[in-house]
Computed example of a mutant assay.
Amino acid sequence: MTGVLGTWFGGLFGERDTALPVPPAPGETAAAARGVSLALGGRAVLDGVDVAVAAGEVLALVGPNGAGKSTLLSVLAADQRPDSGGVTVAGHPAGDWSAPELALRRSVLPQSATLSFPFTVGDVVRMGRAPWAGTRAEDEDDAAVAEAMAATEVAPFAGRPFSALSGGERARVALARVLAQRAPLLLLDEPTAALDLRHQELVLRVCREQARAGRAVVVVLHDLGLAAAYADRAVVLHQGRVATDGPPAEVFTEELLSRVYQHPVEVLPHPGTGTRLVLPRRAG
Protein backbone atom coordinates (compact mmCIF):
# COMPACT_ATOMS: atom_id res chain seq x y z
CA MET A 1 0.00 0.00 0.00
CA THR A 2 1.63 3.19 -1.17
CA GLY A 3 0.97 6.94 -1.04
CA VAL A 4 -0.64 9.03 1.68
CA LEU A 5 -3.12 6.30 2.68
CA GLY A 6 -0.34 3.76 3.07
CA THR A 7 1.75 6.17 5.13
CA TRP A 8 -1.19 6.82 7.46
CA PHE A 9 -1.98 3.12 7.90
CA GLY A 10 1.70 2.38 8.44
CA GLY A 11 1.81 4.84 11.30
CA LEU A 12 -1.35 3.37 12.77
CA PHE A 13 -0.56 -0.32 12.53
CA GLY A 14 3.19 -0.89 12.68
CA GLU A 15 6.71 -0.74 11.36
CA ARG A 16 8.67 -3.06 9.11
CA ASP A 17 10.38 -4.66 12.12
CA THR A 18 7.02 -5.50 13.75
CA ALA A 19 6.88 -9.14 14.83
CA LEU A 20 4.37 -10.83 12.51
CA PRO A 21 2.00 -13.57 13.69
CA VAL A 22 3.21 -17.14 13.44
CA PRO A 23 0.69 -19.21 11.45
CA PRO A 24 -1.00 -21.82 13.68
CA ALA A 25 -0.08 -25.46 13.26
CA PRO A 26 -2.73 -27.75 11.71
CA GLY A 27 -5.28 -28.63 14.36
CA GLU A 28 -4.15 -25.87 16.71
CA THR A 29 -6.98 -23.87 18.27
CA ALA A 30 -7.27 -20.50 16.52
CA ALA A 31 -10.11 -19.11 18.63
CA ALA A 32 -12.30 -20.37 21.43
CA ALA A 33 -15.21 -19.25 23.58
CA ARG A 34 -15.50 -20.90 27.00
CA GLY A 35 -18.60 -20.54 29.12
CA VAL A 36 -19.60 -17.39 27.26
CA SER A 37 -22.83 -15.65 28.21
CA LEU A 38 -24.14 -12.33 26.95
CA ALA A 39 -27.42 -10.48 27.44
CA LEU A 40 -28.63 -7.76 25.08
CA GLY A 41 -31.71 -5.66 25.77
CA GLY A 42 -32.51 -7.75 28.79
CA ARG A 43 -32.49 -11.03 26.81
CA ALA A 44 -29.91 -13.79 27.17
CA VAL A 45 -28.51 -14.02 23.63
CA LEU A 46 -25.70 -16.42 24.58
CA ASP A 47 -25.91 -18.71 27.59
CA GLY A 48 -22.86 -20.73 28.64
CA VAL A 49 -21.54 -21.31 25.12
CA ASP A 50 -18.41 -23.41 24.53
CA VAL A 51 -17.06 -23.30 20.96
CA ALA A 52 -13.59 -23.68 19.47
CA VAL A 53 -12.25 -23.62 15.91
CA ALA A 54 -8.95 -25.12 14.80
CA ALA A 55 -6.55 -24.26 12.01
CA GLY A 56 -7.41 -26.23 8.90
CA GLU A 57 -11.14 -26.59 9.47
CA VAL A 58 -14.39 -24.95 8.40
CA LEU A 59 -16.80 -24.52 11.30
CA ALA A 60 -20.40 -23.64 10.42
CA LEU A 61 -22.61 -21.83 12.93
CA VAL A 62 -26.22 -22.68 12.15
CA GLY A 63 -29.58 -22.29 13.86
CA PRO A 64 -32.85 -20.39 13.55
CA ASN A 65 -33.18 -16.62 13.61
CA GLY A 66 -32.31 -15.22 17.02
CA ALA A 67 -30.32 -18.29 18.07
CA GLY A 68 -27.18 -16.19 18.70
CA LYS A 69 -25.07 -17.04 15.64
CA SER A 70 -23.98 -13.52 14.67
CA THR A 71 -23.48 -12.54 18.30
CA LEU A 72 -21.23 -15.55 18.89
CA LEU A 73 -19.23 -14.66 15.78
CA SER A 74 -18.81 -11.11 17.09
CA VAL A 75 -17.65 -12.44 20.46
CA LEU A 76 -15.12 -14.76 18.79
CA ALA A 77 -13.86 -11.75 16.81
CA ALA A 78 -13.40 -9.84 20.10
CA ASP A 79 -15.68 -7.14 18.68
CA GLN A 80 -18.13 -7.74 21.50
CA ARG A 81 -17.23 -8.51 25.12
CA PRO A 82 -19.25 -11.23 26.86
CA ASP A 83 -20.81 -10.69 30.28
CA SER A 84 -19.12 -13.83 31.55
CA GLY A 85 -16.80 -16.52 30.25
CA GLY A 86 -13.62 -16.12 28.24
CA VAL A 87 -12.50 -15.81 24.63
CA THR A 88 -9.07 -16.62 23.26
CA VAL A 89 -7.63 -15.66 19.88
CA ALA A 90 -4.32 -17.15 18.74
CA GLY A 91 -3.78 -18.71 22.16
CA HIS A 92 -4.16 -15.53 24.22
CA PRO A 93 -7.13 -13.88 25.92
CA ALA A 94 -8.82 -11.71 23.31
CA GLY A 95 -8.60 -8.66 25.57
CA ASP A 96 -4.81 -8.90 25.66
CA TRP A 97 -4.57 -7.98 21.98
CA SER A 98 -4.71 -4.38 20.80
CA ALA A 99 -6.93 -3.59 17.79
CA PRO A 100 -3.94 -3.55 15.39
CA GLU A 101 -2.70 -6.88 16.79
CA LEU A 102 -6.13 -8.43 16.40
CA ALA A 103 -6.29 -7.25 12.79
CA LEU A 104 -3.18 -9.30 12.03
CA ARG A 105 -4.74 -12.43 13.52
CA ARG A 106 -8.38 -12.44 12.46
CA SER A 107 -10.45 -10.97 9.66
CA VAL A 108 -14.19 -10.36 9.91
CA LEU A 109 -16.89 -10.22 7.25
CA PRO A 110 -20.04 -8.51 8.61
CA GLN A 111 -23.52 -9.22 7.25
CA SER A 112 -23.64 -6.04 5.18
CA ALA A 113 -21.05 -3.71 3.69
CA THR A 114 -21.72 -0.02 3.02
CA LEU A 115 -19.37 2.80 2.06
CA SER A 116 -20.03 6.52 1.98
CA PHE A 117 -17.18 7.39 -0.37
CA PRO A 118 -16.81 6.52 -4.08
CA PHE A 119 -14.11 3.86 -3.69
CA THR A 120 -13.55 1.48 -6.57
CA VAL A 121 -13.75 -2.26 -6.15
CA GLY A 122 -9.96 -2.46 -6.27
CA ASP A 123 -9.68 0.17 -3.53
CA VAL A 124 -12.07 -1.72 -1.27
CA VAL A 125 -10.22 -5.01 -1.66
CA ARG A 126 -6.89 -3.29 -1.00
CA MET A 127 -8.29 -2.02 2.31
CA GLY A 128 -7.88 -5.58 3.52
CA ARG A 129 -4.12 -5.03 3.45
CA ALA A 130 -4.27 -2.09 5.88
CA PRO A 131 -3.18 -4.09 8.97
CA TRP A 132 0.09 -5.01 7.26
CA ALA A 133 1.02 -1.46 6.21
CA GLY A 134 4.50 -0.59 7.38
CA THR A 135 5.43 -4.24 8.02
CA ARG A 136 7.48 -6.64 5.91
CA ALA A 137 4.24 -8.26 4.73
CA GLU A 138 3.39 -5.04 2.90
CA ASP A 139 5.50 -6.39 0.05
CA GLU A 140 2.75 -8.99 -0.54
CA ASP A 141 -0.01 -6.41 -1.05
CA ASP A 142 -0.33 -6.61 -4.83
CA ALA A 143 -0.23 -10.41 -4.90
CA ALA A 144 -2.72 -10.72 -2.04
CA VAL A 145 -5.18 -8.33 -3.68
CA ALA A 146 -4.92 -10.01 -7.09
CA GLU A 147 -5.35 -13.47 -5.58
CA ALA A 148 -8.39 -12.44 -3.54
CA MET A 149 -10.08 -10.78 -6.50
CA ALA A 150 -9.48 -13.79 -8.70
CA ALA A 151 -10.84 -16.20 -6.06
CA THR A 152 -14.09 -14.22 -5.72
CA GLU A 153 -14.37 -13.42 -9.45
CA VAL A 154 -14.49 -9.65 -8.97
CA ALA A 155 -11.37 -8.77 -10.97
CA PRO A 156 -13.36 -8.01 -14.18
CA PHE A 157 -15.00 -4.99 -12.49
CA ALA A 158 -12.06 -3.82 -10.36
CA GLY A 159 -12.43 -0.24 -11.60
CA ARG A 160 -16.15 0.13 -10.98
CA PRO A 161 -17.41 2.16 -7.99
CA PHE A 162 -18.41 -0.07 -5.10
CA SER A 163 -21.66 1.90 -4.79
CA ALA A 164 -22.67 0.91 -8.33
CA LEU A 165 -22.59 -2.83 -7.63
CA SER A 166 -25.48 -5.18 -7.00
CA GLY A 167 -25.95 -6.68 -3.55
CA GLY A 168 -24.37 -9.97 -4.60
CA GLU A 169 -21.40 -8.24 -6.20
CA ARG A 170 -20.84 -6.17 -3.08
CA ALA A 171 -20.89 -9.32 -0.98
CA ARG A 172 -18.16 -10.90 -3.09
CA VAL A 173 -16.05 -7.74 -2.99
CA ALA A 174 -16.39 -7.65 0.78
CA LEU A 175 -15.24 -11.26 0.93
CA ALA A 176 -12.29 -10.43 -1.32
CA ARG A 177 -11.28 -7.71 1.15
CA VAL A 178 -11.31 -10.28 3.96
CA LEU A 179 -9.27 -12.76 1.90
CA ALA A 180 -6.71 -10.10 0.99
CA GLN A 181 -6.10 -9.55 4.70
CA ARG A 182 -4.57 -13.06 4.86
CA ALA A 183 -5.30 -13.46 8.56
CA PRO A 184 -5.02 -16.96 10.08
CA LEU A 185 -8.65 -16.80 11.29
CA LEU A 186 -11.61 -15.89 9.06
CA LEU A 187 -14.97 -15.04 10.63
CA LEU A 188 -17.73 -14.75 8.02
CA ASP A 189 -21.29 -13.69 8.85
CA GLU A 190 -23.78 -15.01 6.28
CA PRO A 191 -21.45 -14.61 3.27
CA THR A 192 -23.93 -16.37 0.96
CA ALA A 193 -27.07 -14.42 1.92
CA ALA A 194 -27.16 -12.16 -1.17
CA LEU A 195 -25.73 -14.64 -3.65
CA ASP A 196 -27.17 -16.79 -6.40
CA LEU A 197 -26.67 -20.55 -6.43
CA ARG A 198 -23.42 -20.47 -8.42
CA HIS A 199 -21.78 -17.89 -6.21
CA GLN A 200 -22.96 -19.58 -3.02
CA GLU A 201 -21.02 -22.62 -4.13
CA LEU A 202 -18.05 -20.43 -5.07
CA VAL A 203 -17.91 -18.85 -1.61
CA LEU A 204 -18.05 -22.18 0.21
CA ARG A 205 -15.36 -23.61 -2.07
CA VAL A 206 -13.22 -20.60 -1.15
CA CYS A 207 -13.83 -21.38 2.52
CA ARG A 208 -12.64 -24.95 1.98
CA GLU A 209 -9.55 -23.72 0.09
CA GLN A 210 -8.72 -21.34 2.93
CA ALA A 211 -8.97 -24.21 5.41
CA ARG A 212 -6.75 -26.41 3.25
CA ALA A 213 -4.21 -23.57 3.26
CA GLY A 214 -4.11 -23.85 7.06
CA ARG A 215 -6.52 -21.13 8.12
CA ALA A 216 -9.41 -21.51 10.54
CA VAL A 217 -12.77 -20.53 9.06
CA VAL A 218 -15.97 -19.83 10.99
CA VAL A 219 -19.00 -19.18 8.82
CA VAL A 220 -22.58 -18.34 9.80
CA LEU A 221 -24.97 -20.10 7.43
CA HIS A 222 -28.73 -20.47 7.06
CA ASP A 223 -28.48 -23.09 4.32
CA LEU A 224 -28.05 -26.42 6.12
CA GLY A 225 -27.30 -28.13 2.81
CA LEU A 226 -24.26 -25.91 2.27
CA ALA A 227 -23.14 -26.53 5.84
CA ALA A 228 -23.48 -30.29 5.36
CA ALA A 229 -21.57 -30.22 2.08
CA TYR A 230 -18.66 -27.97 3.03
CA ALA A 231 -18.20 -27.75 6.81
CA ASP A 232 -15.94 -30.05 8.79
CA ARG A 233 -17.97 -29.30 11.90
CA ALA A 234 -21.28 -27.63 12.62
CA VAL A 235 -22.44 -25.97 15.81
CA VAL A 236 -26.22 -25.85 16.02
CA LEU A 237 -27.34 -22.99 18.25
CA HIS A 238 -30.76 -22.92 19.88
CA GLN A 239 -31.96 -20.14 22.16
CA GLY A 240 -28.42 -18.98 22.85
CA ARG A 241 -27.07 -22.42 23.72
CA VAL A 242 -25.17 -25.10 21.83
CA ALA A 243 -27.67 -27.81 20.90
CA THR A 244 -24.98 -29.96 19.29
CA ASP A 245 -21.43 -29.73 17.93
CA GLY A 246 -19.84 -32.18 15.52
CA PRO A 247 -19.52 -33.32 11.89
CA PRO A 248 -22.72 -32.52 9.97
CA ALA A 249 -23.10 -36.16 8.94
CA GLU A 250 -23.39 -37.05 12.63
CA VAL A 251 -25.25 -34.13 14.20
CA PHE A 252 -27.73 -33.15 11.47
CA THR A 253 -30.53 -35.49 12.51
CA GLU A 254 -34.21 -35.16 11.74
CA GLU A 255 -35.15 -35.17 15.43
CA LEU A 256 -32.71 -32.46 16.46
CA LEU A 257 -33.25 -30.14 13.49
CA SER A 258 -37.04 -30.50 13.64
CA ARG A 259 -36.96 -29.53 17.32
CA VAL A 260 -34.53 -26.62 16.91
CA TYR A 261 -36.24 -25.13 13.83
CA GLN A 262 -39.75 -25.96 15.06
CA HIS A 263 -40.63 -27.42 11.69
CA PRO A 264 -40.54 -31.03 10.44
CA VAL A 265 -37.26 -31.72 8.65
CA GLU A 266 -36.08 -34.55 6.43
CA VAL A 267 -32.41 -35.55 6.29
CA LEU A 268 -31.52 -37.69 3.27
CA PRO A 269 -28.26 -38.92 1.73
CA HIS A 270 -27.40 -37.44 -1.65
CA PRO A 271 -27.74 -40.27 -4.20
CA GLY A 272 -24.36 -39.48 -5.76
CA THR A 273 -22.11 -38.18 -2.99
CA GLY A 274 -23.79 -39.39 0.19
CA THR A 275 -23.65 -35.86 1.61
CA ARG A 276 -26.62 -35.07 3.82
CA LEU A 277 -29.48 -33.17 2.22
CA VAL A 278 -31.61 -31.22 4.67
CA LEU A 279 -35.13 -30.42 3.47
CA PRO A 280 -38.26 -29.04 5.11
CA ARG A 281 -40.99 -31.69 5.21
CA ARG A 282 -43.95 -30.49 3.13
CA ALA A 283 -47.48 -31.81 3.08
CA GLY A 284 -48.74 -33.52 -0.05
Score class of each variant (00 low, 15 high):
56 G>N: 03
8 W>M: 14
70 S>F: 09
116 S>G: 15
166 S>M: 04
132 W>I: 10
18 T>I: 04
117 F>C: 02
156 P>Y: 10
150 A>L: 13
46 L>P: 06
135 T>K: 12
200 Q>C: 08
82 P>M: 08
174 A>C: 07
238 H>G: 10
67 A>S: 15
12 L>S: 05
241 R>D: 05
235 V>T: 07
263 H>F: 15
164 A>Y: 09
160 R>F: 07
155 A>P: 03
50 D>I: 03
165 L>W: 10
96 D>N: 11
210 Q>K: 10
11 G>F: 07
42 G>H: 01
30 A>S: 11
50 D>K: 01
203 V>N: 00
180 A>I: 09
220 V>A: 11
259 R>F: 06
87 V>W: 05
151 A>P: 09
238 H>R: 13
264 P>H: 04
280 P>S: 03
232 D>R: 06
238 H>F: 12
59 L>G: 01
90 A>W: 08
191 P>V: 04
162 F>P: 07
160 R>E: 15
74 S>R: 15
9 F>I: 06
62 V>P: 03
75 V>T: 09
9 F>M: 14
129 R>V: 07
105 R>G: 00
159 G>A: 14
171 A>W: 00
213 A>G: 09
141 D>N: 08
186 L>M: 03
136 R>E: 15
169 E>M: 10
5 L>S: 13
68 G>T: 06
23 P>D: 09
126 R>W: 01
59 L>T: 00
135 T>V: 00
171 A>H: 04
